[in-house]
Each structure stands twice: as C-alpha cells, then as structure tokens.
C-alpha cells in the first residue's frame, strides 16, 4: 500500500513536537557539574605512602612525562645482630599533564597501587609549566579519587579480601578450638564455669 500523501510531512512535525516535550540533552557545565562515571580519566593521583620508587611507571610511560627522583637510606637491623637494610626514599614525583596522553598505563603497571585515576578535570592553567603537578599536588588529588565501583552480583571475591577473610577464619577457628579445650577442662570441676570460660577466651585472644 502506498503511503498517504503528506504522511511524511506529518511524521516530521510529530518528531519535532515529541522532541520538544522530552528533556533536553544540554549540559549546563559551568553552572552544573557533570556527573562523571567513577572510572573517568580526569587526573592522576599519587598515593605516595604506597610508592616504593620502583620506577615502573616512569619507564612504561609512552610520553616520558613522569619524573621521579629518589635516594637510598640505610635502616638499622630490625633484630640485634641482623643485617642492615637499605630503603628507597622518594624525593620528587611529578607528572607533566601537558605531555600526558591519559593512557593510564602507569596506573595499570604500578604493582603497589600508588597511582589512581580521579575524575577531577578542572585544572587548566594559563602557564604550561604549571601543568607539571608535583608530589604534593598529586597527593592532594588522592582525596578526590572515588571509591571503586561495586562488584557485579555473583562476582568473584577480590583477592585481598579473600586473603584477609582466610586469615580471619583461621584465627577464629583457632580461638574456638582453645575455648573448646578450656570448656572440656572445666567439665571436671563444675561451678567455676563462667569465670574460667572468660579466662579461656582471653587466653585464646593472646
């Protein structure tokens, strides 16, 4: 069946009218901040407490925009008669965001979870030198890093949580075993159960 003449014209009018009743897509950016997804690549934050100056990030960076200076310090032996240890101390950590191409390889490659993506993006400068963010500024960005998004339902447990849970389970099992043994020991002398039960628990914790 051929279309009714003029039906296309009516369809066009319907489209524009329908669009008018819908929400607009305009982002009123400077007035209203955009709602960015948690994994947005805005700026890179440095959690310097985790950094061991392994230099992997600086070496992997395709733009060579990460600058790291460090020195070694000697730490006295932990136990008397032990060997002295040397430790890396971070002197400078800077990322030049004028060079950075936001590939995120440094974050992927960091084995100690010292680098993170933050969705903050409002750090334009009038002087290009100021785009080199030094250590303290990179540390400040850490406060803007959002917590990681929740896992999918039914997802595998994260490894660090699994490890922690394993240790906790082991400890608890041990505790219970100690308590059990204490109770069995008290079975011979009834009457003092409550007191000695507590004592057994304290022992277990120690």
């Amino acid at each position: 069946m051929p279309p009714i003449p003029g039906s296309g014209l009516a369809k066009g009018l319907a489209v524009t009218l329908r669009t008018m009743t819908k929400r607009t897509v305009t982002a009123q950016y400077p007035d209203v901040q955009p709602e960015l997804p948690p994994r947005s690549r805005g700026v890179i934050g440095l959690f310097e407490e985790n950094c061991t100056v392994c230099m992997l990030c600086a070496r992997e960076c395709p733009d060579w925009c990460i600058y790291i200076d460090s020195h070694k310090e000697t730490v006295p032996p932990a136990a008397p008669g032990g060997r002295e240890r040397s430790r890396n101390v971070l002197d400078r950590f800077a990322i030049d965001f004028a060079l950075c191409m936001y590939c995120g390889i440094c974050i992927e490659v960091c084995p100690f979870d010292a680098l993170f993506w933050s969705p903050e993006f409002e750090y334009a400068e009038t002087d290009i030198h100021e785009l080199t963010h030094e250590r303290d500024k990179l540390r400040e960005w850490m406060w803007t890093v959002p917590e990681p998004p929740a896992l999918d339902p039914g997802a595998e447990e994260p490894k660090e949580i699994a490890a922690a849970r394993k240790t906790a389970d082991k400890l608890q099992a041990q505790e219970e075993r100690v308590a059990q043994e204490a109770r069995e020991a008290q079975g011979a002398q009834p009457g003092k159960e409550a007191q000695s039960g507590q004592a057994a628990e304290q022992e277990g914790q120690e």
Binding site: T16, L17, T19, M20, T24, T26, Q28
Partner: peptide, 13 residues
C-alpha cells in the same frame, strides 16, 4: 526557545 527545545537543546540561558 521553541526551536532549541525541538532540537533537544535549551537555547539562550
């Protein structure tokens, strides 16, 4: 305004 909203925009604000 009408043209903007028909195009999914806000128009002058």
């Amino acid at each position: 305004k009408v043209m903007a909203h028909m195009q999914g925009r806000l128009g002058p604000m």
